[in-house]
C-alpha cells in the first residue's frame, strides 16, 4: 500500500489533471482500509467545491438513461460532468455486471465527462462504501458537478439523500405497488420527482397520484415534479432548471448548509461504525475475545458483562492514532 508521500503525490497528479491518477485514486477508495484512510487525509488540504446530484429509483426506471440525457443537457450549458454509477454486487459471488455505462454511450471518449462504474460490494443503502470518498476525489480534482446513480432502490436504500445536494427520484408512469410501499421513504428524500418514460401510458394518473402523495406526506417541502423521456431528451431542459431552482433555494435558505452538516454527521457515524466493527471483529478473533467466549460457554460470566468487558478492551489505548 502506498505510503502517505506516494499518496500525496498521486493526489497532486490527479489534481493536476491526470485522469488516470484520478481513476487510480477511486480504486484506492474502493479497496478501503488504510489506503482509503491515507487518501482522505491527503484530500483534506485540497480546495474545490462540487455540487452533487443523486439519481435514485427502481431498477430499470431509466436512471442511467436520464443521467446520460442530463449530462448532455448540462454539457450544452457548458458544464463538465462526472458521474458515479453504482450497480449491485451479487451477495453470493461478490461479482457484478456493471451495465450503466451502456446507456452512457454518447459520452464515451468525451474528455469533459468522467464516468466511473462502482459495484456496491455488499454495502446496503444504494451506494458503495467508497462512493463518498470517490465524490471527494472528484471534488478535489475540480469536477464541478457530480451525478451519483444509485442501485435500484428497495426499502431501505436511501443513503443517497445524505450523500448529495439534490436528490432526483425517478418514477415511471404506472408506478407499481413496490413504489407505493416505499412511498413514505421516497417522499422524505425526493427534492425533485422525475416521471421518466413519459411517453408511456398512465402519465396523467401517475402525476395525480404523486401530487396527492406529496400533499399528504410532504406538504411543506413540496418537491417539484418534472416529466421526461430520457431516451429522446425530452423534458431535460425543465429538469436542469428544476435542479438550478432547488440549488438556489436551498442555498438561499441555508438548507444547503444544514444538509452538508448533516452529511458530515452521517459520514462520521458511518465511518466510525465501520471502524468499530472491524476492531470488534479483530478483538473477537483474538485471544481476549476467545477467552471471553469461553467464559460465557462455561457459564463463568454472563453474556452482557462479557460484552461490556470486550468493549472496554477496545478503548484502553490512549493514543487516538491507534484507536480503531
Amino acid at each position: 500500500m502506498a505510503g502517505p508521500d506516494a499518496m500525496a503525490e498521486l493526489v497532486a497528479e490527479a489534481v493536476g489533471g491526470s485522469r488516470s491518477a484520478l481513476a487510480r485514486l477511486i480504486s484506492v477508495a474502493e479497496r478501503g482500509g488504510e489506503g482509503s484512510a491515507a487518501l482522505e487525509a491527503a484530500l483534506l488540504p485540497c480546495r474545490g467545491e462540487s455540487y452533487s446530484i443523486g439519481i435514485t429509483g427502481a431498477p430499470g426506471a431509466g436512471k442511467s438513461t436520464l443521467a446520460s440525457a442530463l449530462t448532455t443537457e448540462l454539457q450544452t450549458a457548458g458544464e463538465r460532468v462526472a458521474l458515479l454509477a453504482v450497480d449491485p454486487s451479487s451477495p453470493l459471488t461478490r461479482g457484478a455486471i456493471l451495465g450503466d455505462r451502456v446507456r452512457l454511450q454518447p459520452h464515451l471518449g468525451n474528455p469533459e465527462v468522467f464516468i466511473r462504474s462502482m459495484a456496491s460490494r455488499g454495502h446496503l443503502g444504494g451506494l458503495a462504501m467508497a462512493t463518498c470518498t470517490a465524490r471527494r476525489v472528484l471534488e478535489a480534482c475540480g469536477w464541478p458537478l457530480v451525478l451519483i446513480e444509485t442501485v435500484g432502490v428497495g426499502q431501505a436504500e436511501l443513503d443517497v439523500a445524505g450523500a448529495t445536494d439534490t436528490v432526483l427520484v425517478v418514477l415511471n408512469p404506472g408506478w407499481g405497488d413496490e413504489m407505493q410501499a416505499n412511498k413514505a421513504g421516497l417522499m422524505e428524500i425526493a427534492d425533485i420527482f422525475v416521471i421518466n418514460k413519459a411517453d408511456r401510458q398512465g402519465l396523467e394518473a401517475t402525476r395525480r397520484d404523486l401530487e396527492a402523495a406529496i400533499a399528504a406526506n410532504a406538504p411543506t417541502r413540496r418537491p417539484a415534479i418534472v416529466e421526461t423521456v430520457a431516451t429522446e431528451g425530452t423534458g431535460l431542459n425543465a429538469l436542469r432548471e428544476a435542479i438550478a431552482d432547488h440549488r438556489q433555494q436551498t442555498t438561499a435558505s441555508g438548507e444547503h448548509q444544514r444538509r452538508r452538516q448533516a452529511r458530515a454527521v452521517t459520514e462520521l457515524r458511518d465511518l466510525a461504525r465501520a471502524r468499530l466493527e472491524l476492531a470488534l471483529e479483530a478483538q473477537l478473533a483474538g485471544a481476549a475475545g476467545k477467552a471471553l467466549a469461553d467464559a460465557v460457554t462455561r457459564r463463568e460470566t454472563d453474556v452482557d458483562s462479557a460484552a461490556r468487558r470486550l468493549l472496554a478492551t477496545l478503548f484502553t489505548r490512549s493514543d487516538p492514532e491507534q484507536a480503531p
Binding site: 461479482g95 454511450q105 464515451l108 471518449g109
Partner: peptide
Amino acid sequence: EVIMIGMARPEEVVQACVDED
C-alpha cells in the same frame, strides 16, 4: 466486476479503461 460498455471505437475503449481503472 464486469463493466459493459457496448460498441466502442478504439479511442473510446482506451478512455473507458483509464477512467474505470
